[in-house]
Amino acid sequence: MRVLLVEDDELIGKGVVAGLSKHGIGAHHVRTAQAAETAHLEETFHALVLDLGLPDRDGMELMATLRAVDPHLPVLILTARDAIEHRLKGLHEGADDYLVKPFDLRELAARLHALVRRTQGRAAQVVAAGPLRLEPASGLAWLHGESVALSRREIDLLTHLADADGRWVTPQVLNERLFGLGEEIGSNALNVHIHNIRRKLGSAAIETARGLGYRLGWRPSP
């Protein structure tokens, strides 16, 4: 399991990373909301561990932003705000769990394992194509039965190609589905994601045809 830890205190962050690793949980630690958004685009995480008192944005706003693109991402709020009003507000606004500082790392690890188990149980859609298996809701992927780390955008791109069921998809359509009409993107962004997918899954994963676009290299299973 791999989680995104958003904690502005460097000492606490390092302690949580080290403690979770002893319980089989890898943690990527960032200190700001902006860094969290960047990490979430570049890598798939099984859960978000979120401190509310961030230097550049309120943690609740960050949770709403990440949930807008990843609605099934489990969120555990980790904060010193121990008043019952704060806990209820966090839960009402979408958090799955709440742990008040100071805390026991064993409890944090146990809560994260429970959150991820529940989320995986809700993940109904499974994409199977050749040696590739995806669970878009949980962000998990396997190639020939071996786990593969794909970013959220890479998962979305593969899912859109699988949905096309062997038809070619133009770059314009893929850009619209991946980034939306209102998001400013670099002209090479789609090519970068495709390059990264081929690097992780092999060159046969995505086919390209000039004038037609892209399609999944393996046909989805019925």
Rank of each mutant, 00 (worst) to 15 (best):
D51E: 07
G94A: 08
L48R: 07
L112Q: 02
V148Q: 06
L62V: 09
D104G: 12
L158S: 05
L78G: 05
R215V: 03
R106F: 04
N175S: 14
R81Y: 15
V192D: 12
H28R: 15
L52G: 06
H23R: 13
T65H: 14
R199W: 07
A36G: 02
P136V: 05
A27C: 05
G166V: 08
K22L: 13
V30M: 00
L134T: 11
D56G: 07
G26M: 06
Y98P: 01
T38A: 13
L143M: 14
L11G: 05
I197S: 08
A114R: 09
R67Q: 15
A124S: 10
G53W: 14
V126P: 05
G213N: 02
H86T: 10
T32W: 01
I185Y: 08
V192N: 12
E207R: 10
D163T: 13
R167F: 14
R153L: 13
E107M: 05
R152S: 05
A110N: 09
G53S: 15
G180M: 10
I185M: 13
D9A: 14
F179M: 11
E93P: 00
D82P: 03
E207I: 04
I197W: 07
R152Q: 11
E183P: 00
E184A: 14
A35K: 04
A124P: 00
T44P: 01
A128H: 15
G90M: 04
Y214I: 07
Y98V: 01
K200S: 10
M1W: 01
L174G: 12
G145P: 01
D96C: 02
G213H: 07
H29Y: 00
E61I: 10
L143K: 11
L20T: 11
A189R: 14
G213D: 01
Q172W: 08
R177V: 09
S21W: 14
D82H: 08
M63C: 08
R152L: 11
R152H: 12
L48C: 04
V3E: 01
L157F: 04
V116D: 00
T44K: 02
L140R: 15
P171M: 12
L132E: 09
A33T: 07
E10A: 15
G15N: 04
S147M: 12
D163C: 11
A137Y: 08
L216K: 02
L4S: 06
V169Y: 11
D70V: 10
G213Q: 03
V30E: 07
A39F: 01
I12W: 12
I194M: 11
K200P: 00
P220K: 02
S21Q: 14
L158I: 02
L4Y: 13
E154W: 06
G53A: 15
L73V: 07
P71V: 03
P171L: 12
D163L: 14
V116Q: 03
P136M: 03
A162E: 12
G15F: 09
V17R: 13
V169E: 06
D58L: 02
D104S: 14
H160T: 07
P131Q: 10
A164E: 06
H193F: 12
L105K: 08
Q34I: 13
A141I: 01
G13F: 06
E107L: 03
R122A: 14
T44N: 08
L115P: 05
T159S: 07
H23D: 10
G121S: 06
D8Y: 05
E146T: 13
E85S: 11
T159H: 09
L91R: 01
K14R: 11
F45K: 01
T65Y: 09
L62P: 01
